[in-house]
Design a protein around this nucleic acid. Structure first.
Lengths: 342, 342
DNA sequence: TTAGATTAAAAAACCGGTTTTGCAAAATAT
DNA sequence: ATATTTTGCAAAACCGGTTTTTTAATCTAA
């Protein structure tokens, strides 16, 4: 069926040269090992002629490196994580790295088992958007000397790099925009979660409300919930709080459920309800009216993540430098928050 | 830094037992190899006690299996491929398989280099949504005995399984719906591509037009094009063809560009333009008005894909059975194609 | 009683590489 | 002319498993 690929042994036999010599030549160590130009050429010519490529698994076993990276996100089908995954993978492949991925769905145990599984695959590094309570598990990984980059949400007490955005500042600015537009009763709908990015967004909202002497109206929705349940919950919240005239949704999927709820309630945007959301999406851009969004620079985020990880991997000494790379988001103001001045 | 993991050699040394014996016991071949219950228990107890897990790379090298699957899609950030990737990965992991993925962006050369890269990684199988002209490259992979599942679009002359939907029939039905709603000048906007699913959708449209004695109005857009270019192109098409009163978009991203175009032109849906699209999306569901969509059963598709591939992998004899698994889509009728009867 | 079969486990070969060590022959130094 | 170093490559050990072969001890049969 398949003509078996040639191995380094076959080459050695054919050229009557030791396989160690061939290995060195292929890996560019000919000069260092003082191998004659003559033999080097002979070997390289033959290797090129037959198009020999070292067996990856064998190489990995011998070197202890797998040339693969584990990407652990909340949900690869999400409009934030999907593009991130796309860009990370493209950059990684250019550097000869494979990406294996898995979605946690926000579940700590799922994430833990993925982490374990990927550790057993001997990935060379991790990129993780962790659910809560992963400090110990991830700390263990780092302690074993495996490079890790955390992104989107930070974990405290973990000695590794983090890439994220200025959640609190941009949320403050975004809410300020709502205030300036004349909204008086601004609510935030966020996750019932201790994830840092959620807390930061909430804090941005709260400090803005404090600053403008408005009352905070906070509604927290559990993460693990199917879509229509979320919608119902949000509907109920709006019904019970008819005084609210604007809502800041802390994630894209909360806003999607929120838009469904508002539609079902017949509330018009922005007249009856101003709407703003963290994260961008075709839906928000094209909705009627278009929804004001906080846009994270996905390209820059991805680049920061993968560049940093690759650098960590290539360094022999695992430097525990605990960097926090913050890439600022921007507010795209659209009609959903623009009020006729009254 | 990291206390090195124990290997099977360490266990052998510690228990004074040959490592081959340990390997057999761990792999459940104790009875077959007639190893005494006594020794078996002693080894298993110790293995469990120290929580030994065989080194994956070593195991892979020895067995020639990598327990990984290559997933090659057009764009993992797409609202069709993203959820597919999510579901495939979850099922694969339950069976102990890793998924490595990459996006072709619809480019044949990119796909070819991904294929090569993944082949060098010795994946145990492939799941591919191929760009055009991949017949030879994929044929070669199959010829080497690696299981392959093609999905979404089929390639001719390739001896392997395919999972897809009833593109032509459902497109016919969908267009029939437009006709029944009284639309008289129905256009299709599709890709300028030979991909089978596009041709089938187009054929469904054309045969429907023939059947109802309407003229076909076909507009083809190049795939590799940035979003606003596509929008401009579609705008121009609508401007030059003002007679069109309904459009069937053959993919989700074409429709997104189309909606932008229609909005910029100030054309109202469905009064001035009926809109229908192949594939579902939050945007279509929540758009104002909601867009009639052809919904592929993503869950069933993913299950068919991964179940089939895993089965192929587990079979020793690579059966070239050339199955075509068709999972029917359904039409979700929404306001974008509902006309007041005139 | 002793050859032949069976049992239980060790030993060796292998997967396909990388890295360390070893060792003649040639070159240089004394 | 001989000791020492350098050169150029082969050989061996290793990575951590799996699979095949070998061996020694015990059991069975003639």
């Amino acid at each position: 069926m398949s003509e078996t690929r040639l191995s380094i042994n076959d080459i050695a036999k054919h050229l009557h040269v030791a396989k160690s010599t061939i290995s060195c030549i292929i890996n560019g160590k000919a000069a260092e090992r003082r191998i004659s130009k003559d033999l080097e050429k002979r070997v390289l010519d033959y290797v090129n002629k037959i198009g020999f490529k070292p067996h990856h698994l064998a190489q990995n076993l011998a070197t202890g490196k797998s040339k693969s990276i584990g990407l652990i996100v909340e949900n690869i089908a999400d409009s934030f994580f999907g593009p991130i995954a796309l860009m990370i993978e493209e950059k990684a492949m250019k550097s000869g790295y494979r990406i294996i991925y898995s979605s946690t769905r926000g579940e700590t145990e799922t994430a833990a088992s993925i982490l374990k599984f990927f550790m057993e695959s001997h990935v060379d590094g991790f990129i993780i958007a962790p659910p809560p309570h992963m400090e110990d598990k991830i700390g263990q990984v780092i302690h074993e000397g495996i490079p890790v980059i955390i992104f989107d949400r930070i974990l405290n007490g973990i000695d590794t790099d983090y890439v994220g955005t200025n959640n609190q500042e941009i949320s403050f600015d975004a809410c300020t925009h709502l205030v300036e537009q004349g909204f008086k009763k601004i609510a935030i709908i966020t996750l019932d979660s201790e994830q840092s990015q959620m807390l930061e967004r909430l804090e941005g909202y709260k400090s803005c409300m404090r600053h403008f002497k408005q009352q905070s109206i906070i509604f927290k929705v559990p993460y693990q919930e199917i879509q229509y349940m979320r919608k119902n919950r949000i509907m109920k919240f709006f019904q019970e709080n008819p005084q609210i005239d604007a809502t800041f949704f802390a994630t894209n999927y909360l806003c999607i459920s929120g838009l469904e709820a508002l539609r079902e309630l017949g509330k018009s945007i922005p007249e009856t309800m101003g709407v703003m959301v963290f994260d961008e999406n075709d839906l928000f851009r094209l909705y009627h009216p278009p929804i004001t969004s906080i846009v994270q620079p996905l390209e820059l985020l991805s680049a920061a993540i993968i560049d940093n990880l690759l650098q960590k991997i290539s360094l022999k000494k695992p430097i525990l430098n605990n960097q926090r790379i913050i890439i600022p988001s921007s507010l795209i103001i659209r009609q959903s928050t623009i009020r006729e001045k009254n």
